[in-house]
Write a protein that binds this DNA or RNA. Structure first.
Lengths: 110, 110
DNA sequence: CGACTGGTTCGATAGGGATCGTACTACCAA
DNA sequence: TTGGTAGTACGATCCCTATCGAACCAGTCG
């Protein structure tokens, strides 16, 4: 039977609070091409599980990149079943660094 | 005597053209704390020679950081006498990544 | 000319981080 | 319960880069 799973199996997954987000960490996170691609996809397509993007790296490297994005405050991750759903923390980022994400997302994509 | 030096002893110092500026390189350049500090100072105080900021690094490291900023397209350097004057390439950056620099510069500075 | 100042160049070093594979956990479905 | 799927954890490797000191170069000032 399709048991209705706990709608938020979220195990808190330490995210920085808005006040704890540092611009250097955000820039560092966004500077990697793979991570920038992840961010662009989430920005374009909304909430996404880790696996849907086929990135040219291994699963463990992928996990690493999502962690960097989460710990720097760029994305939020919540557990849903066996997946992790990722969203941009756009509100927080816009409040702290108004224009930054828009500028990054407006950049020509090769 | 105070010979009037060539007002622009600029030896071209390869800068990327606007179209060549890549957002990953800019983010990478801005992600370093020392370089971010340099950028903030130039943004606040206008054109600056390399030496006026007393940074907690050696002269050669300083040169390295200015080169990274120049080659990524964040700053422009021109030679004046024995100095190099640095300016933000704000027009180019705003055109390519509208809001990015404003967001970075608006970030709380610790 | 000779000294000084601002900055570069060159090698060397150390630390960080991007990467991988393997082993593991958690949830879901049959 | 058994298997499959989504992702994590860990240890190892390798490269990139921030750093330094020493030598050097180019203007400027006396």
């Amino acid at each position: 039977m399709t048991t209705v799973a706990n709608p938020d199996t979220g195990r808190a997954l330490d995210h920085p609070a808005r006040e704890q987000i540092r611009v250097e960490a955000v820039l560092q996170a966004l500077a990697d091409p793979i991570r920038l691609r992840i961010v662009r996809e989430i920005a374009d397509r909304g909430e996404l599980p880790c696996g849907v993007l086929d990135l040219p790296v291994s699963k463990s490297t992928c996990t690493h990149h999502y962690r960097v994005l989460r710990e720097s405050g760029v994305i939020h991750q919540r557990c849903v079943g066996t997946s992790r759903m990722n969203t941009l923390r756009k509100e927080d980022l816009d409040a702290l660094f108004p224009g930054l994400m828009d500028g990054v997302l407006a950049a020509p994509r090769d």
